[in-house]
Protein backbone atom coordinates (compact mmCIF):
# COMPACT_ATOMS: atom_id res chain seq x y z
CA UNK A 1 0.00 0.00 0.00
CA UNK A 2 1.57 3.26 -1.00
CA UNK A 3 1.08 6.15 1.44
CA UNK A 4 -1.49 8.62 0.13
CA UNK A 5 -0.41 12.11 -0.76
CA UNK A 6 -1.06 14.30 2.24
CA UNK A 7 -3.22 17.36 1.97
CA UNK A 8 -3.02 20.36 4.23
CA UNK A 9 -5.80 22.87 4.21
CA UNK A 10 -5.50 26.22 5.93
CA UNK A 11 -2.54 28.47 6.41
CA UNK A 12 0.83 26.68 6.58
CA UNK A 13 2.49 29.93 7.71
CA UNK A 14 5.41 29.86 5.33
CA UNK A 15 7.26 32.92 4.14
CA UNK A 16 6.51 31.94 0.56
CA UNK A 17 2.82 31.99 1.29
CA UNK A 18 3.05 35.40 2.94
CA UNK A 19 4.88 36.72 -0.10
CA UNK A 20 2.34 35.15 -2.41
CA UNK A 21 -0.55 36.64 -0.51
CA UNK A 22 1.08 40.05 -0.45
CA UNK A 23 1.64 39.84 -4.18
CA UNK A 24 -1.94 38.74 -4.70
CA UNK A 25 -3.24 41.60 -2.55
CA UNK A 26 -1.18 44.17 -4.43
CA UNK A 27 -2.14 42.95 -7.87
CA UNK A 28 -5.77 42.20 -7.18
CA UNK A 29 -7.81 43.34 -10.15
CA UNK A 30 -10.41 40.61 -10.47
CA UNK A 31 -14.11 40.72 -9.61
CA UNK A 32 -15.13 41.36 -6.03
CA UNK A 33 -16.03 37.70 -5.58
CA UNK A 34 -12.55 36.50 -6.48
CA UNK A 35 -10.14 35.03 -3.98
CA UNK A 36 -6.53 33.89 -4.09
CA UNK A 37 -5.80 30.24 -4.64
CA UNK A 38 -2.33 29.07 -3.57
CA UNK A 39 -1.18 25.58 -4.47
CA UNK A 40 2.10 24.39 -3.02
CA UNK A 41 3.79 21.22 -4.23
CA UNK A 42 6.43 19.43 -2.21
CA UNK A 43 8.59 16.38 -2.78
CA UNK A 44 8.32 13.46 -0.31
CA UNK A 45 11.24 14.86 1.70
CA UNK A 46 9.44 18.19 2.12
CA UNK A 47 11.41 20.26 -0.39
CA UNK A 48 9.60 22.68 -2.69
CA UNK A 49 8.99 21.26 -6.16
CA UNK A 50 9.50 23.87 -8.84
CA UNK A 51 8.18 23.50 -12.37
CA UNK A 52 5.19 21.26 -11.60
CA UNK A 53 2.18 21.87 -13.82
CA UNK A 54 -0.94 22.84 -11.83
CA UNK A 55 -4.45 22.97 -13.26
CA UNK A 56 -7.63 24.06 -11.48
CA UNK A 57 -11.11 23.32 -12.87
CA UNK A 58 -14.31 24.75 -11.33
CA UNK A 59 -16.79 22.06 -10.26
CA UNK A 60 -19.79 24.39 -10.18
CA UNK A 61 -19.85 25.23 -13.87
CA UNK A 62 -17.82 25.06 -17.04
CA UNK A 63 -15.80 28.17 -16.20
CA UNK A 64 -14.29 30.42 -18.77
CA UNK A 65 -12.11 28.83 -21.42
CA UNK A 66 -8.68 30.38 -21.58
CA UNK A 67 -7.94 32.03 -24.92
CA UNK A 68 -5.52 30.13 -27.21
CA UNK A 69 -1.98 31.44 -27.36
CA UNK A 70 0.82 31.43 -29.91
CA UNK A 71 3.86 29.84 -28.31
CA UNK A 72 7.38 29.03 -29.45
CA UNK A 73 9.50 25.95 -28.76
CA UNK A 74 12.95 26.65 -30.17
CA UNK A 75 15.79 24.21 -30.88
CA UNK A 76 18.90 25.50 -29.13
CA UNK A 77 22.13 23.54 -28.72
CA UNK A 78 20.39 20.26 -29.62
CA UNK A 79 17.71 20.70 -26.99
CA UNK A 80 14.13 21.93 -26.92
CA UNK A 81 13.76 25.36 -25.35
CA UNK A 82 11.68 25.32 -23.24
CA UNK A 83 11.50 21.63 -22.44
CA UNK A 84 8.05 21.97 -20.86
CA UNK A 85 5.25 24.27 -21.90
CA UNK A 86 1.62 24.52 -20.77
CA UNK A 87 -0.81 25.86 -23.36
CA UNK A 88 -4.60 26.12 -23.59
CA UNK A 89 -6.47 23.94 -26.06
CA UNK A 90 -6.52 25.49 -29.53
CA UNK A 91 -3.12 27.13 -29.16
CA UNK A 92 -0.44 27.04 -31.84
CA UNK A 93 3.24 26.38 -31.35
CA UNK A 94 5.97 27.44 -33.69
CA UNK A 95 9.13 25.30 -33.85
CA UNK A 96 12.03 27.38 -35.16
CA UNK A 97 15.53 25.92 -35.37
CA UNK A 98 18.25 28.14 -33.92
CA UNK A 99 20.84 25.36 -34.23
CA UNK A 100 23.32 24.99 -37.04
CA UNK A 101 22.30 21.33 -37.38
CA UNK A 102 19.06 19.91 -38.73
CA UNK A 103 16.34 18.40 -36.58
CA UNK A 104 13.32 16.21 -37.29
CA UNK A 105 10.86 16.65 -34.48
CA UNK A 106 7.91 14.38 -33.90
CA UNK A 107 5.18 13.35 -31.51
CA UNK A 108 3.34 10.05 -31.53
CA UNK A 109 1.32 10.97 -28.42
CA UNK A 110 -2.41 10.33 -28.96
CA UNK A 111 -3.08 13.97 -28.02
CA UNK A 112 -1.34 15.17 -31.18
CA UNK A 113 0.65 13.21 -33.74
CA UNK A 114 2.87 15.18 -36.05
CA UNK A 115 6.30 15.22 -37.67
CA UNK A 116 8.25 18.22 -38.77
CA UNK A 117 11.70 18.33 -40.40
CA UNK A 118 13.56 21.45 -39.29
CA UNK A 119 16.36 22.16 -41.69
CA UNK A 120 18.58 25.11 -41.09
CA UNK A 121 17.23 28.52 -41.99
CA UNK A 122 13.81 27.36 -43.20
CA UNK A 123 10.66 28.55 -41.44
CA UNK A 124 7.83 26.06 -40.94
CA UNK A 125 4.15 26.75 -40.24
CA UNK A 126 3.08 26.48 -36.59
CA UNK A 127 1.36 23.36 -35.27
CA UNK A 128 -2.09 23.65 -33.69
CA UNK A 129 -3.05 21.62 -30.60
CA UNK A 130 -6.82 21.04 -30.45
CA UNK A 131 -7.03 18.30 -27.87
CA UNK A 132 -6.19 18.33 -24.16
CA UNK A 133 -3.43 16.01 -22.95
CA UNK A 134 0.33 15.62 -22.77
CA UNK A 135 2.38 15.71 -25.98
CA UNK A 136 5.86 14.17 -25.79
CA UNK A 137 8.26 15.72 -28.28
CA UNK A 138 11.34 14.01 -29.66
CA UNK A 139 13.86 14.45 -32.46
CA UNK A 140 14.32 11.66 -34.97
CA UNK A 141 18.00 12.58 -35.39
CA UNK A 142 19.01 13.42 -31.81
CA UNK A 143 17.68 10.78 -29.45
CA UNK A 144 18.45 12.66 -26.27
CA UNK A 145 16.13 15.55 -27.16
CA UNK A 146 12.98 15.30 -25.09
CA UNK A 147 10.32 17.88 -24.24
CA UNK A 148 6.67 18.04 -23.20
CA UNK A 149 3.68 20.16 -24.13
CA UNK A 150 0.78 20.06 -21.69
CA UNK A 151 -2.35 21.05 -23.60
CA UNK A 152 -5.05 21.91 -21.09
CA UNK A 153 -8.74 22.82 -21.16
CA UNK A 154 -8.66 24.04 -17.54
CA UNK A 155 -9.47 27.72 -17.07
CA UNK A 156 -6.70 28.14 -14.50
CA UNK A 157 -3.27 26.65 -14.97
CA UNK A 158 0.41 27.36 -14.50
CA UNK A 159 3.64 26.03 -13.06
CA UNK A 160 5.04 26.17 -9.56
CA UNK A 161 7.80 28.68 -8.93
CA UNK A 162 11.07 28.17 -7.08
CA UNK A 163 9.23 28.09 -3.77
CA UNK A 164 7.03 25.30 -5.12
CA UNK A 165 3.95 27.57 -5.21
CA UNK A 166 1.45 28.51 -7.90
CA UNK A 167 -0.87 31.43 -7.19
CA UNK A 168 -4.04 32.39 -9.08
CA UNK A 169 -7.00 34.69 -8.69
CA UNK A 170 -10.14 32.57 -9.02
CA UNK A 171 -13.87 33.14 -8.40
CA UNK A 172 -15.12 31.62 -5.17
CA UNK A 173 -16.43 28.12 -5.53
CA UNK A 174 -15.37 24.50 -5.60
CA UNK A 175 -12.37 23.34 -7.67
CA UNK A 176 -10.59 20.17 -8.70
CA UNK A 177 -6.85 20.65 -8.65
CA UNK A 178 -4.41 18.39 -10.52
CA UNK A 179 -0.66 18.43 -10.74
CA UNK A 180 1.75 16.88 -13.22
CA UNK A 181 5.50 16.74 -13.67
CA UNK A 182 7.40 14.91 -16.43
CA UNK A 183 9.49 13.03 -13.90
CA UNK A 184 6.67 12.34 -11.44
CA UNK A 185 6.17 8.69 -10.48
CA UNK A 186 2.90 9.18 -8.58
CA UNK A 187 -0.24 8.48 -10.59
CA UNK A 188 -1.87 11.73 -11.62
CA UNK A 189 -5.21 10.65 -10.14
CA UNK A 190 -3.57 10.07 -6.73
CA UNK A 191 -2.71 13.76 -6.61
CA UNK A 192 -6.10 15.16 -7.65
CA UNK A 193 -7.79 17.13 -4.90
CA UNK A 194 -11.04 19.02 -4.51
CA UNK A 195 -11.16 22.18 -2.47
CA UNK A 196 -13.51 25.05 -1.80
CA UNK A 197 -12.48 28.64 -2.17
CA UNK A 198 -14.81 30.06 0.46
CA UNK A 199 -15.31 33.29 2.31
CA UNK A 200 -11.69 33.83 3.22
CA UNK A 201 -9.48 35.96 1.01
CA UNK A 202 -7.44 32.96 0.10
CA UNK A 203 -7.42 29.19 0.01
CA UNK A 204 -4.25 27.23 0.37
CA UNK A 205 -3.55 23.63 -0.58
CA UNK A 206 -0.24 21.85 -0.15
CA UNK A 207 0.31 18.64 -2.06
CA UNK A 208 3.07 16.18 -1.20
CA UNK A 209 4.32 13.69 -3.74
CA UNK A 210 4.42 10.20 -2.26
CA UNK A 211 7.32 9.10 -4.47
CA UNK A 212 10.57 10.83 -5.31
CA UNK A 213 10.91 12.18 -8.86
CA UNK A 214 12.85 10.22 -11.43
CA UNK A 215 16.40 11.57 -11.84
CA UNK A 216 16.79 14.65 -14.01
CA UNK A 217 18.38 14.24 -17.45
CA UNK A 218 22.16 14.45 -17.48
CA UNK A 219 23.21 17.88 -18.66
CA UNK A 220 27.00 17.73 -18.72
CA UNK A 221 27.21 15.20 -21.55
CA UNK A 222 28.20 16.66 -24.92
CA UNK A 223 25.40 16.30 -27.42
CA UNK A 224 27.71 14.81 -30.01
CA UNK A 225 28.07 11.60 -27.96
CA UNK A 226 25.59 8.83 -28.29
CA UNK A 227 23.43 9.17 -25.22
Amino acid sequence: MRPPARVHRGVPGTRQLAAALLLAALTRVGPALAATLVISVQSPDGHALAGAVVTARPLDGPGKRPPPVRAIVDQVDRAFAPDLLVIPVGSTVEFPNSDSVSHQIYSFSPTKRFKLPLYRGKPYPPVQFDQAGVVTLGCNIHDDMLAYLVVTDAPYFGRTDKSGAWVAEVPRGRYRVSIWHPRMRDAETDLERELTVGDADHAVLTLHLAKALLPAPITYRPHSWDY
Binding site: Q104, Y106, F108, K115, G138, N140, I141
Partner: peptide, 8 residues
Protein backbone atom coordinates in the same frame (compact mmCIF):
# COMPACT_ATOMS: atom_id res chain seq x y z
CA UNK B 1 16.90 4.77 -43.39
CA UNK B 2 15.33 6.47 -40.43
CA UNK B 3 11.54 6.63 -40.53
CA UNK B 4 9.74 8.55 -37.80
CA UNK B 5 8.68 6.49 -34.77
CA UNK B 6 5.24 4.97 -34.87
CA UNK B 7 3.26 4.30 -31.68
CA UNK B 8 6.40 4.01 -29.62
Amino acid sequence: FRPYPFSG
